[in-house]
Design a protein around this nucleic acid. Structure first.
Lengths: 189, 189
DNA sequence: TTTTTAGTGCAGTGATCGCTGCGTTTGTGC
DNA sequence: GCACAAACGCAGCGATCACTGCACTAAAAA
């Protein structure tokens, strides 16, 4: 796996056909991960599914790990808007429910697992996404209200970690009720 | 990936050479996962590293997913003994520190990530290991003392989830001090 | 010990993989 | 609209993969 990601750089050409190819490849990866076990998720398979030549995928992404990290990053960018309900409790409850719903999607779950497996540290970063900044934004807003919220570390441990752990490692459902109990534990009445 | 795992069944022959082959293959998987990126972790590569013919690996495990699940299960079986310090707080702190040390090992982390990625639900179960039962044992003992401990679900969310999340998804260190704070949060003074 | 048979080694097959020149298409700046 | 270069399609190369009969070794039972 190359260290260079597939970000757009100077002299690139992100519009038109390139964008179509990129979208088709991303969709193919998701489809192949969903009907799991059918195909071994290799570059020629992805390319065939996307109706694109394998050469293109090799040149743009280089390896399956980079491709997965790119798909995950794109999947998790802007998927959740930081809520603004007026209270930290409301914000976190809303956020936790949104994230629970997101991680409940079998497609997303399969994507996360595959990215963790083949993407290494870069893949892990893609799976984290912008969660940390989003949490920080809600905590900052609470501080702006003059209150003293729990630390980012504590919030991560109490909210993010259980959501990700339950989704990735167990087969228990991520219900909104359960997600809300995480907030109740973090912010006692 | 076949649904049949590599458990020992009636008419099996687990001793002598078979055991040696199994150990060599397990060691080869760990080594290949550790010098990550070098080899693509495929069955012929594992077999060559183990000094075993690929045919054997194909027949005993069938797929890389099954092989990884088997290695992880074996790695996590009996790695932590449930502590008995006399108090739930002491038990959990000891347990959390042990688990933190376990997950801090780069070999173990790479194994967990790879198993999650290729092992599907079966791989996830292997990564969970016997954590749930171990937690339950400590909670049961506390109940036998006449106290009312937190629920298994709450303990999982507060202890197991942060440890696994931090190890797998972030690059922050799993220090014993941090692990102990998890217990302090779960069991307020 | 002898017998049995699960487990392993060996050689070979078709299919696929990762990759590379080379020519063509097509966004993008002039 | 024109020229340029980035991105793509194409054909094909060596290497590897997943898998399969057949023969052999050695662990376990008689």
């Amino acid at each position: 796996m190359a260290t260079t990601s597939a970000r757009l750089q100077a002299g690139s050409r992100p519009g038109g056909r390139s964008a179509r190819v990129r979208a088709a490849v991303h969709r193919a990866v998701q489809e192949l991960l969903t009907d799991e076990g059918a195909e071994p998720l290799t570059i020629p398979v992805v390319a065939a599914r996307a109706g694109v030549h394998a050469t293109t995928v090799y040149r743009r992404w280089g390896s399956v790990g980079d491709l997965l990290a790119d798909v995950t990053t794109s999947r998790f960018s802007g998927d959740i808007v930081v809520p603004d309900t007026g209270s930290l409790r409301g914000d976190l409850e809303r956020y936790a429910c949104d994230l629970a719903k997101d991680l409940s999607d079998p497609d997303t779950l399969a994507l996360v697992r595959a990215t963790i497996g083949t993407g290494g540290e870069q893949g892990a970063a893609a799976c984290r996404g912008e969660r940390q900044q989003q949490l920080e934004a809600m905590l900052d807003r609470e501080r702006a209200r003059g209150n003293e919220p729990p630390s980012l570390e504590r919030t991560t441990d109490a909210v993010l970690a259980p959501l990700y752990y339950r989704a990735v490692f167990t087969d228990q459902p991520l219900t909104p009720e359960w997600a809300r109990t995480l907030i109740s534990t973090l912010l006692p009445a």
